[in-house]
Design a protein around this nucleic acid. Sequence first.
RNA 1: GUCUCCAUCGUCUAGAGGCCUAGGACACCAGGUUCUCAUCCUGGUAACAUGGGUUCGAAUCCCAUUGGAGAUGCCA
Length: 493
Amino acid sequence: MDQELTASVRTRFAPSPTGMMHVGNLRTALYAYLLAKSKGGSFILRIEDTDRTRMVDQAVEVIYKTLDAAGLKHDEGPDVGGPCGPYVQSERQAAGIYMKYAKMLVEKGAAYYCFCDKADPLEESHEPEEASFSAGYNGHCRNLPQEEVSANLAAGKPFVIRQKINREGSTTYQDAVFGEITIKNDVLDDQILIKRDGFPTYNFANVVDDHLMGITHVVRGAEYLSSTPKYNMLYEAFGWTIPVYVHLPLIMGRDAEGNVAKLSKRHGSVSFENLCAEGYLPEAIVNYIALLGWNPKNEREIFSLPELVEAFNISGLNKASAIFDYEKLAWLNGEYIRKMTPAQLGVLIAPYTHLQGTRFEPVMEQLAALLQPRLSKLSEAGEKLAFLLQCPDYGPDLFFNKKNKVNAESSREILSIMIPRLSELKVWNAATINDAITACASERSCKYLSVMLPLLFAVSGLKATPGGASDLMALLGREESLARLETALAKLS
RNA sequence: GUCUCCAUCGUCUAGAGGCCUAGGACACCAGGUUCUCAUCCUGGUAACAUGGGUUCGAAUCCCAUUGGAGAUGCCA
């Protein structure tokens, strides 16, 4: 029971290659990783491709890429090898591993061959063969005479292998997060271990592989809480040690109507790749999901992966499910963006700016510096910088700011004064431009903003911009800036 | 339907009987700094689902109710 005494912790992440990586799955991987690493143990990757109908091309690559981007380096797995291979269940199936153990179970009387057809009316029947069958399969083949089984097998009749559940009493187990869980055995059904196609089900492959791979802590979603007794019966039938269970609270999403449900597509981007494509940084995503269901027992919120490893503890795991909050993710992402250097940010925003190949590409770092405090995700860089290439269309009403007494009339006046002055500047940079603005304001005994705002509006065509008038004019250059000021003056006259 | 689990601000959470007139963060609101906007700084609004117990004392323990989620697949 005392995990501290466990010689070497081994956890695994066992995804199915069915497409993109859901953040819920990624969080499971993260916690499995953190648990192992915080104890100096091993983190194993196992591919669970036993459902051939759900296989998606390239999905295994997606898994590798995602784990890599998230920084969750596995110690053993299909691509890096290890002592417990193969790490792909279809390969293990081909090696006959699951069938071997299933037959062992049949011999022990803990499983049986079932010849019922998928659509067999007997299976559909609500009249169970045994009175105690309250759920699932009706038990038709549960006690088939040995001769009949042999005859069917000899005749090559298709079969599945089912677990023979002892329906008496109840099963109690200890979960590291949820504590003691007790389930009445009569609600457990004779689940299928080996499918008609010879592949194992998750329920069986998991137990066999977790044991064979020496997994000490099974980290998985809370949806397995009620089926865990079935796994324990398997472990017991084999005489294997039951691992420590670490069931995780589910991650929920809120849809447009405000209903809470398991996080899914309709709640927005929920795959790691989509989130990244939208401009959330992998480090921020990892940091955010780490806090969804776990807390460090203090008020700290920003953690790098190594810091998470350092701080992680099972006791910080929560029981209640959590709702994925894009706003908080965005805030955290902004924090990460602000921590970078402008040069680093420049590289990251470049693809989003539509400025590559333009005269602005060489000043990407400057642009990044301006954007840095204004970005919550990289994808926002595009819209925020669009005005550089083309000044948005606007009307005279853009020139209005009550507090600083800016209106169309005052703006026309300011522009007509400032255009000649600016065009006479010997040196065109933010400092000289700013000096010109300051000088004008002091001459007129008016506020700096009364002069600056009309210029800002004229040069950007926007009410809110990622920089002040002098910054933007410096970026746009003398020619373009003056042209925009002239255009504005014309519109106001 | 049956079974299991869960339940503190709108959201993520702290809280393991007195430290709680319940703390932090996001969001929101107000003020300040600022070359607009943003960043940054200050402050504010906002929660123990309900009802019973147990106890000198309960957000914390027990029971019930209600609400939510999950399971009930030859999916994982």
